[in-house]
Simulated assay, not measured.
Amino acid sequence: MEIIPTRVHGVLDYFTGILLILAPWLFGFADGSAAQWVPMVLGAAVIVYSLITDYELGLVAAIPMPVHLMLDVGGGMLLLVSPWLFGFSERIAWPHVAVGLIEVAVAALTHRHAGHAGAAGVR
């Protein structure tokens, strides 16, 4: 079921990227460990691939929306399992799990093709 327009998805992308970068300080796990670095790196990646996605809020139409959504699912799954994969689940897990689940769900509910002529009008 594709109920989220790509323009809305774009807003959520940039919000999620910023949230992931700031999460360690917002939720008290900025300690230099994998718990801090995994969301920060994934947040930066979300911003970068959003900027080069062929949708309304991309700057350069380098990757198609279906590829973007696959990256969202992959990043969300990595974030979701990261507390156990990198061994910090006993200290902090809920922000990673919650944002990971939301990222996967949003990708699953987003339109597969942007309703426009190209990212920021660039082709």
Results as ranks from 00 to 15, higher is better:
residue 17 G to M: 10
residue 71 L to R: 13
residue 116 H to P: 00
residue 110 T to R: 02
residue 110 T to I: 06
residue 33 S to G: 12
residue 60 V to M: 12
residue 98 A to Q: 03
residue 35 A to Q: 12
residue 95 P to S: 03
residue 28 G to V: 07
residue 34 A to G: 03
residue 92 I to Q: 12
residue 67 V to H: 03
residue 3 I to M: 05
residue 57 L to P: 01
residue 98 A to F: 10
residue 101 L to F: 01
residue 91 R to Q: 07
residue 8 V to C: 01
residue 8 V to M: 13
residue 70 M to L: 14
residue 20 L to K: 02
residue 94 W to C: 07
residue 101 L to W: 00
residue 8 V to T: 14
residue 55 Y to K: 10
residue 22 L to D: 08
residue 91 R to F: 00
residue 96 H to A: 06
residue 96 H to C: 05
residue 103 E to D: 07
residue 107 A to I: 02
residue 52 I to R: 15
residue 80 L to K: 01
residue 6 T to F: 05
residue 76 G to E: 00
residue 70 M to C: 02
residue 84 W to R: 14
residue 83 P to W: 06
residue 57 L to A: 04
residue 47 I to E: 03
residue 16 T to M: 14
residue 75 G to M: 10
residue 37 W to R: 03
residue 33 S to C: 04
residue 62 A to R: 15
residue 65 M to Y: 08
residue 44 A to H: 01
residue 61 A to Y: 01
residue 122 V to Q: 15
residue 85 L to H: 02
residue 111 H to Y: 14
residue 45 A to V: 04
residue 20 L to G: 11
residue 100 G to F: 04
residue 20 L to F: 05
residue 98 A to V: 14
residue 65 M to C: 12
residue 89 S to W: 10
residue 29 F to M: 06
residue 7 R to D: 15
residue 101 L to K: 00
residue 40 M to R: 13
residue 116 H to Q: 06
residue 115 G to K: 13
residue 117 A to I: 09
residue 65 M to G: 08
